[in-house]
């Protein structure tokens, strides 16, 4: 190996090491931008009354960390009750989607029947409608059904999502036809094939739909804002908007409220992120 070559290789190696260090620095910078504001709010929620949260030289770490704000915010508004309402809506929608979207997705993917193409087209067609363009009519329907100002009214339009039906249809389509044929030869009826052959093959998709539905219900704002009025029925996001918009002037309490809305969802996401990234990649391109 010539000396010249050796110098070239070592300089490549050195520049590679530098570029790794540079990448870490840039990644840390983006990470700081991503969580910085959330950490600042977390710190504020843990600061005691004695500490000035508006000080011009603020400290990220609370001087005397306290959980007082998390109990005091519940005296201002029933924030934990709101969180319970959000969980209730999410639970209804998760059950509805797991049952309804799974059944419909299976029929559209694996069963031959007259009108199948038309129904598939109907599900597909609604994807071009922005959700906000139809909420007024949805709201009118919910009121006419006597479900205005109720959690069932909040949950009902999202009980079986068209996108979930389509995602599951795709997942069922990916199961090889031979598996079904073999089961038919063995005398399995349609419900047995659904239960024992199809379902075990779409567990990943079901997990993704569960996570996405939970996040969607937990974070949703415009629709529950329109449907709900009674202070005891608000979901967490509507309750949080109410908390910060009306009478609470202490930023520590508002910060505690924001953390109650953020921490559960971020923890769930961090634990399940492996399933999640796969799902988002697929869902976004298709939807």
């Amino acid at each position: 190996m010539s000396a010249e070559h050796r110098i070239a290789t070592s300089s490549v190696r050195r520049s590679r090491r530098w570029s790794t260090a540079g990448r870490y620095l840039l990644l840390l910078l983006v990470a700081a931008i991503s969580v910085g504001p959330i950490l600042w709010e977390l710190s504020t929620s843990l600061k005691s009354k004695a500490e000035d949260v508006y000080s011009q030289t603020p400290s990220l770490l609370p001087q005397h960390p306290t959980f007082d704000n998390f109990s005091e915010v519940a005296r201002a508004v029933p924030i934990y009750h709101f969180a319970g309402n959000s969980v209730t809506v999410a639970a209804m929608q998760i059950v509805g989607n797991l049952l309804g979207a799974t059944a419909a997705g299976y029929a559209l993917a694996k069963l031959k029947f007259r009108g199948r193409k038309l129904i598939f087209g109907l599900f597909l067609s609604t994807l071009v409608l922005p959700a906000e363009a139809t909420i007024i009519s949805q709201f009118q329907t919910i009121v006419k059904l006597g479900l205005g100002d109720s959690l069932v009214g909040v949950a009902l339009p999202g009980l079986i999502g068209a996108i979930n039906v389509l995602l599951l249809r795709n997942a069922f389509m990916a199961i090889p036809e031979e598996l079904d044929q073999a089961a038919i030869v063995d005398g399995a009826n349609v419900w047995q094939r659904f239960r024992y052959i199809a379902l075990p093959n779409v567990v990943g998709t079901l997990a993704i739909i569960t996570i996405l539905t939970f996040i969607g219900a937990w974070d949703d704002f415009l629709w529950p804002l329109l449907v709900l009025q009674s202070p005891d029925k608000l979901t967490l996001t509507v309750g949080l908007a109410y908390l910060q918009g009306t009478f609470v002037n202490d930023p520590r309490l508002v910060a505690a409220g924001a953390m109650i809305a953020l921490i559960p969802i971020l923890v769930i996401f961090a634990v399940l992120q492996r399933y999640f990234f796969r799902g988002v990649g697929e869902g976004a391109i298709k939807g």
């Binding site: 937990w218 949080l240 996401f269």
Partner: peptide, 17 residues
């Protein structure tokens, strides 16, 4: 995962921040 936190976070909560 960290880069995705803002996406998962409730819009109301981060707007409050």
């Amino acid at each position: 995962t960290i880069f995705y936190f803002p996406v998962i976070a409730s819009a109301v909560a981060v707007a409050v921040i």
